[in-house]
């Protein structure tokens, strides 16, 4: 405990709480994650590369990344719209709508998965309307995207909403006084301040979508090369007792998540700085 500066230790319990926290963190999180790295290292570099560059694996990465990206893009637009409507307008049932935004956080993913599949399957409530139009949702990449839209929507709404709520109206007031049209005011005055939280929400939804399993696995159809997401492929490898290969596929997936997490941290720092400079100026 030589790292600790003595003068700060007025309150009791540092060594026991810090010690327990680090021990628990190591046992539950760090050591198991290290096992993943070690297991994937059992493959030689060329075996490792063969595993992660296998066409079926690459197809699954591509599918997971693309569907998560498009879902996050849809959520960017509708998340902003929902946040806007909830902060700026009054309408009956607004409190309930606001509460429902969090449902995807609270609802077990398997429940969301079977419900969305049933609605958007060819014989489902919405699927049967779309089928004659030639649009297939369930068991296609579109269905995967839909499930990821469900999972990701709270991230964008909940990052944009507080910023929109705290926004001062004086800049808008000035723009209106200077004769700017509302649409112009929105794009020139309001939107620029919302870009950091929008990007943060987008990145959070995107990161979550890449690893998502429960809500997707029912609606995706799970056809190799076509609708097989990366997390499912990990399970397939595991069921074939290809532990090291499963670990290699997982390591790449994990690295993608970490890069996104890093990006989110940078964005949040940028966003905080921006807010401070806006408020200070």
């Amino acid at each position: 405990m030589t790292l600790l500066r003595k003068k700060d230790r007025v309150l009791p319990g540092l060594s026991i709480t810090l010690g327990f926290s680090v021990l628990y963190l190591s046992l539950i999180v760090l050591i198991p994650l290290a096992a993943l790295a070690l297991k994937s290292a059992e493959l030689s570099p060329s075996q490792w590369w063969d595993t992660v560059s296998d066409p079926r694996v690459v197809a699954s990465y591509k599918l997971s990344l693309l569907t998560a990206f498009f879902a996050a893009l849809v959520n960017l637009v509708f998340g902003l719209l929902l946040a806007w409507v909830l902060v700026r307008y009054k309408f009956p049932g607004k409190r309930i709508v606001d509460g429902l935004i969090d449902l995807p956080f609270a609802l077990p993913t398997a429940v969301a998965g079977i419900a969305l599949t049933t609605i958007y399957a060819p014989k489902g409530w919405v699927g049967s309307i779309l089928e004659p139009l030639g649009i297939k949702v369930a068991y296609t990449p579109l269905g995967i995207t839909l499930a990821l839209i469900f999972i990701g929507i709270p991230f964008v709404v909940r990052t944009v909403q507080p910023i929109l709520q705290d926004m001062e109206s004086d800049m808008e007031e000035a723009a209106a006084l200077l004769g700017a049209h509302r649409a112009r005011t929105f794009f020139k005055v309001i939107l620029p301040d919302l870009i950091p939280p929008l990007l943060t929400g987008f990145a959070l939804a995107f990161a979550r979508g890449i690893g998502e399993y429960g809500s997707v696995v029912f609606i995706s159809g799970n056809m190799p090369m076509k609708t097989e997401i990366a997390p499912l492929l990990i399970i397939t490898k595991l069921e074939q007792y290809e532990y090291s290969q499963a670990a290699a596929v997982a390591v790449v997936l994990l690295l993608i998540s970490f890069v996104l997490l890093l990006l989110i941290n940078i964005l949040q720092r940028w966003s905080n700085r921006r807010l401070r400079s806006v408020k200070g100026g």
Binding site: G211, E212, P231, I235
Partner: peptide, 8 residues
């Protein structure tokens, strides 16, 4: 753990 896919 929030950054790790449930499957992983």
């Amino acid at each position: 753990p929030f950054a790790v896919s449930p499957v992983v």
